[in-house]
Write a protein that binds this DNA or RNA. Structure first.
Length: 544
DNA sequence: ATGTCC
């Protein structure tokens, strides 16, 4: 199999170029067609290094001299530093083989219909079997490669916390809110009128004083300071969005659920720059894993939890700003608009409770959660909690706790009550449906062990951003893909960023039906309905 | 995904 490596200039390591070493490449550096000759050739042509003479492995600083060095050190994702004679630049770090690493840890991939790229499987397996404490890993059907760690992945880890597995967008997730609009107000061409109403949603929301009041919750304040709070109430970039959807079908008969014909707002956003600043603080060079009980672990968890609360407050505020545009007659939402001056703390509280009444569900899909392991049957199945842990897990499997790391994976239970969620969204992309999922619990999945108490969080990319941009901008050249093409099907998309139009096109994603079917086939969820977006808001440039 | 980063 071919090996992807990165070739970098040892003296100036920001200069780098990718290189695919074919399976036929020869490890003996003296031979013709050797790996070394390919690396040197890349260094000459891409890095403009005239006389490359030495090669080091980044991080360890190991120099590759003889055939054995090349054989032992060339692996996928290795960074090779090419030198023109000078010594290795950087601190040599040993690769720690920790006793808590489980080289044979089970890796479950819940996909048969949805396509899975081999790179994402390699990332999932390598991560699972090289980081300490991981006892179970799951690739959801939306699994796809990340920079280093996969997305659509869940890692259950004993005694160890791994901030990079959650990534920078700590607390990212989705929330559904009921709107008072009727479907006839958003169907067909009416969608365009509704889209026109969505303005004033891009800049900072009001003053820092009011943002701090908004960030006050039952656990205190989750303000991150003005630098980060100024982004509160904004959607952000990448795959984030807010959509006005119609519930097309729903088997839900619950009062607090979704009923056919309901018009809802789905908000997908996270902690903006704040979560990234938390990751940066804890994922410093050698420190990729934090051991339970250390002050670093405790501090990370504290800041992580705060970023999760911030992200949830962000989704709430995004919803409020949309409500101010969509239901202008309702005075309680005027706080969302930036042009109404006087507000007091009582009106904020009124607004928050009105918003809570509209919130159907809010989940985090980038976070770490401490849970009992192995999972017990939900107590809704008629079993008392105390009985669960004693008779079912007591002697045979001592009840432990693990840290469930989710990177682009939705939870199956409410993090507070630990009870199963009754519904959660599985969004496709733009015009494609958002499925309404209900998590399933049964002995067949060991009550959620199989899926690590998690589900897919979306369709998942099937094309990298770069690939989507190049191939889809060609495919749709001269076409406007931001409005419905004929008939009543399709979605009005607000996306004033050129590249994002193609990077986020439905073609760049897997088929959400296949992803949903994989969850059903795995016995971890049922599809209880679906929605279709009428308006999808990504980003607006108010200057034009 | 990001007031991005060498």
């Amino acid at each position: 199999m071919a090996t992807r490596v990165t070739v970098a200039n040892n003296a100036k390591q920001s200069q780098k170029a990718p290189l695919v070493l074919p399976a036929a490449a020869i490890t003996d550096p003296a031979a013709a067609g050797s790996m070394q000759s390919l690396v040197f050739k890349t260094a000459q042509s891409k890095l403009k290094l005239k006389k490359p003479t030495r090669v080091f492995v980044k991080q360890t600083g190991q120099e590759l001299i003889n055939e054995k060095d090349w054989k032992d050190n060339i692996r996928s994702d290795a960074v090779l530093l090419v030198s023109t004679g000078e010594e290795y630049v950087g601190v040599k770090k040993e690769i720690i083989i920790h006793e808590d690493i489980n080289p044979s840890c089970p890796v479950e991939i819940l996909a048969s219909n949805a396509p899975i790229e081999s790179l994402s499987v390699t990332q999932l397996t390598t991560t699972t079997r090289t980081l300490p404490g991981i006892i179970h890993a799951v690739g959801q059907p939306d699994l796809h490669p990340g920079t280093k760690f996969p997305i659509g992945a869940v890692f259950a880890s004993y005694k160890w916390i791994h901030p990079p597995l959650i990534g920078g967008d700590i607390g990212c997730g989705m929330a559904w809110f009921q709107l008072s609009l009727s479907r006839s107000q958003v169907d067909g061409d009416k969608g365009k009128k509704v889209a026109e109403k969505l303005r004033g949603l891009e800049g900072p929301w009001r003053t820092q004083e009011l943002r701090e009041l908004w960030l006050q919750d039952k656990d205190g304040s989750c303000s991150a300071g003005e630098q980060w709070d100024s982004s509160l109430g904004t959607i952000g970039a990448g795959n984030h969005f807010a959509e006005i959807q119609v519930v097309e079908e729903s088997a839900s008969d619950l009062d607090n659920g979704l009923r056919e014909g309901d018009v809802v707002l789905l908000v997908h956003s996270g902690s903006r720059g704040y979560g990234g600043s938390v990751l940066k603080k804890y994922a410093v060079e050698s420190q990729t894993s934090l051991e339970e009980g250390t002050t670093e672990a405790a501090e990370y968890l504290k800041e992580h939890d705060k970023a999760c609360r911030w992200a949830k407050a962000n989704r709430d505020l995004i919803a409020l700003r949309f409500l101010a545009c969509l239901e202008p007659g309702n005075e309680v939402w005027q706080l969302g608009a930036s042009d109404v001056d006087h507000v007091d703390s009582a009106s904020i509280e009124r607004c928050k409770s009105a918003l809570q009444a509209r919130r159907v569900v809010d989940i985090w899909h980038n976070n770490v959660e401490r849970v009992s392991w192995p999972p017990s049957p939900p107590s809704a199945m008629g079993l008392d909690k105390a009985v669960d842990s004693l008779s079912l897990n007591g002697s045979k499997y001592p009840q432990e706790h693990v840290y469930v790391h989710r990177k682009g994976a939705a939870p199956t239970c409410d993090p507070e009550s630990h009870q199963p969620l009754t519904l959660l969204p599985l969004p496709g992309s733009r015009g494609t449906p958002t499925l309404i999922l209900q998590p399933s619990f049964s002995a067949a999945t060991s009550w959620g062990l199989k899926n690590a108490l998690s589900l897919a969080h979306g369709a998942g990319r099937s094309m990298s951003r770069a690939k989507a941009l190049s191939s889809l901008s060609q495919k749709y050249k001269g076409q406007n893909i931001l409005q419905p093409r004929g008939g009543d099907e399709g979605t009005w998309v607000i996306c004033d960023e050129k590249d994002l139009v193609f990077e986020e096109a439905p073609d760049a994603y897997k088929d959400v039906q296949a992803v949903g079917q994989d969850l059903v086939d795995a016995g971890v969820a049922t599809i209880v309905g679906w929605c279709r977006a009428r308006v999808s808001y990504k980003v607006r440039n108010e200057n034009h």
